[in-house]
C-alpha cells in the first residue's frame, strides 16, 4: 500500500501571509468552514477542530487596543526605533500584535480605536527577515 502525503495548503501558510502583505498590502488569515474559528496569520489546519476546509479572510481595517506598552530598551534590530509603542489590538474577534506609529503615547488607551496601515516593500534585508524600515504593517490611532 502506498502512503498518501500532502503538503500544507499553500494558501494558508505563513509565506502566503507575507506574500499578501508585501504584494497587496493586506493582512490575511483563515476562517474555518467547519467550526468558524478565525486565525491570523492563517494556519493550514484549524486549531480548534483540525479541519483543512478553510477560506481566506481579510483583517478588518479598524480595531480596538487590548493592551499597549512603550518600549525603551530593545534588541539591536529594534534599538533604532526606541522609544516605540507596541500593542495588541482586537479586530472584530481577531487579535494581532503590532507597533503603534505616529502617536503620542499619552493619547493611547486600552479601548482606543486603531487602524492598520501597511506598506509593500520590494526588498527585505537582513538575516532576521526584517526590512530596514521595520515591520510592513503597523497601527495608527483612528482619526489622527
Amino acid at each position: 500500500m502506498q502512503r498518501h502525503t500532502s503538503s500544507p495548503n499553500e494558501n494558508f501558510t505563513i509565506q502566503s501571509f507575507f506574500d499578501a502583505l508585501r504584494n497587496q498590502g493586506i493582512l490575511i488569515g483563515a476562517l474555518c468552514n467547519r467550526c468558524g474559528w478565525k486565525m491570523l496569520p492563517p494556519r493550514p489546519a484549524c486549531t480548534k477542530c483540525f479541519s483543512t476546509e478553510l477560506q481566506r479572510l481579510q483583517l478588518p481595517k479598524s480595531g480596538k487596543v487590548i493592551s499597549f506598552s512603550e518600549v525603551h530598551v530593545s534588541s539591536d534590530a529594534f534599538s533604532r526605533y526606541v522609544p516605540y509603542i507596541v500593542a495588541i489590538a482586537d479586530f472584530d474577534g481577531i487579535r494581532i500584535p503590532g507597533m503603534i506609529k505616529n502617536a503620542n503615547v499619552k493619547k493611547v488607551r486600552v479601548g482606543a480605536l486603531v487602524e492598520v496601515r501597511t506598506k509593500a516593500l520590494s526588498k527585505i534585508s537582513g538575516a532576521d527577515g526584517l526590512s530596514q524600515d521595520g515591520p510592513e504593517y503597523w497601527f495608527e490611532l483612528a482619526g489622527e
Binding site: P41, V71, S75, P135
Partner: peptide, 9 residues
C-alpha cells in the same frame, strides 16, 4: 511571525 517582527521584547 508577528510578535518578534513587531518588536515585542
Amino acid at each position: 511571525t508577528l510578535e518578534q517582527y513587531s518588536g515585542l521584547t
